[in-house]
Structure formats: C-alpha cells, structure tokens
Amino acid sequence: MTSRPTALVTGATGGIGLELARSLASTHDLVLTGRSDQKLAALRAEFPNARVLALDLSRPADLAANLPPFEALDVLIHNAGVAELGTVAETPADVWDETMRVNVLAPAELTRLLLQALRAARGHVVFVNSGAGLNASPGWGPYAASKFALKALADALRGEESSRGVRVTTVYPGRTATDMQRHVRQQEGGAYQPDVYIRPSSVARTILAVLSTPRDALLTDVTVRPSE
C-alpha cells in the first residue's frame, strides 16, 4: 500500500485554510494548525484522521518545542495571518511587531524547521499572500509591509532550494469572504459584502491547481482577483 503525501496547513480553523483542509483530505494526510481551542476541537471532529496542532504563530521562538518531527513533508501551506490596519502616524510599535511576527517571522521559522522534511519529499511550499503584498495602499502600512516581506521570503527560498527539488509558490488573493475580511471591513468602516468577494473555496481550488502543476513547470506567483 502506497503511503499518501502529507500536507501541513497553518490557519486551518477557518476561511481559506479550512477549505484547503476539506479539499486535501481525500488525497493527503493532514497536519492542521490553529490557535483557538474551540476551533481546534471542531477541526478534530471534522477531520478525525488528521493531526491537529495548537501553534501560536505570534511566538515564533516557541514553534520548535511544539512541532512534531517529520521525516518527509510534501506540502507546506502558510495560510495563517493577521491584518491590523492603520496609518504610519497612528500605528504603535506593538502592532507592527505582532504583524511581522505572525505574518513573516513565524512562516520563516516554520519553514526552517521543516526544510529537511521538505527536501526529503521534494515538497511544495505555498505562501498565501495578498494583493497588499504587491501594492501598499494608505492605511495598510503594517499589513502590506509584512506581505511584501513574505514575498521576499518566498523568492529567496525558491532560489535557495530549487536545486534540491523544493518548489515555492506565492498566491495573492484579492478580497476573500473570510472572518479576516470581516475584521478588515470593520476597520475600514464599510459593509462586509461576501457576495462580491472571492469564495474561500475558490482560492483553495486555485492552490490545488498550483500543487498539481507537473514537475517540469512551476507557477511561481499567482494572483487571484474577484471576477466582478
């Protein structure tokens, strides 16, 4: 019996991460991470065969102590993130600090810790970025800066690991109907309109297409925009 590939998805308790878990469950052994005990319990109920891990990405230095060993890892999807808006003039250092820790430092550390397993499997790392990782708008400084940095991390990793067979893709979704988007709209003072945003399942299907790209080709950067 051939063993199934293993996929680790961060931020799997909702939104794009949950849809990814649902999409991958039939073909991959899942390792799903989150922070909320209640939501992690729901994950365990929906995916009884998955390994569900409580990882606090706001504490990158603690990841090593809470991560089980992996001999091989086929897919690593960095999906978790935080989005706090504010102008440069009004955003205090602690917001910048948490945003960078969760959105950049934790993915960097998690990748470092899992790199040997990814090399062993000639695995694929997917960074779920944002349109803000390509264009920084007023009031989006901390979040956009973290996403620009995440793009730099992905680009550097791709160049460093391609000779070892590790593939790296960045996906840039536009506004997606998730709890994060609801929080963003509250900060913007606007209405949350899920019908005009991308469905999380559509982003998940795009990422599945990225993962299914033949070995002789690589999608390095994929932008996903609402169709209307």
Rank of each mutant, 00 (worst) to 15 (best):
V128C: 06
H78F: 03
Y143N: 08
V95A: 04
A83I: 09
Q116S: 15
V125A: 13
G131E: 08
H78W: 09
L118T: 02
S130N: 09
F127N: 14
Q116L: 14
L85S: 10
I77A: 06
A120H: 08
M100L: 15
G139I: 00
A120L: 00
N129V: 01
G86Q: 08
I77E: 06
F127P: 10
V128P: 12
A80V: 00
E84R: 14
N135P: 07
N135V: 13
D94Y: 11
G141E: 12
V104M: 13
A121W: 05
L134N: 04
R101H: 06
G81S: 01
A132D: 13
T91Y: 01
E98Q: 15
G139A: 01
D97I: 09
L105Y: 11
N103Y: 02
L114F: 05
L113N: 04
A120Q: 07
V126C: 03
W140R: 11
H78P: 02
V95T: 14
N103L: 04
A108Q: 11
S137W: 10
N103H: 07
T91S: 07
A83R: 09
T99A: 06
E109M: 14
N129M: 02
N135S: 15
L85M: 10
N135I: 12
M100D: 05
A108Y: 08
V88E: 06
E90W: 01
L110I: 00
T99M: 05
F127D: 13
F127T: 12
L105H: 12
E84H: 13
L85C: 05
L134H: 01
G81I: 01
V88P: 08
A93H: 15
R119A: 06
P138Q: 07
A136N: 05
R112Q: 13
V126A: 10
R101K: 14
N79L: 00
V82C: 10
A132L: 11
N135G: 04
Y143S: 03
P138C: 07
G139N: 03
G123Q: 09
P107W: 06
V125Q: 11
V104F: 11
A80S: 12
S130M: 09
L113M: 08
V88L: 15
L118H: 04
L134Y: 04
R122L: 01
V88Q: 06
A144D: 06
V125S: 14
E84A: 14
P142T: 04
V95D: 05
E84T: 15
E90Y: 02
V82T: 10
A108T: 05
Y143C: 00
G133M: 03
I77G: 03
Q116C: 14
A132V: 01
A80M: 02
A144H: 00
L113A: 05
T99Q: 14
G86V: 06
A144E: 04
S130A: 06
A93D: 15
R122F: 05
H78S: 00
G133P: 04
T99N: 04
V125M: 11
V88A: 14
G81Q: 08
A108R: 09
E90G: 15
N79V: 00
A89G: 08
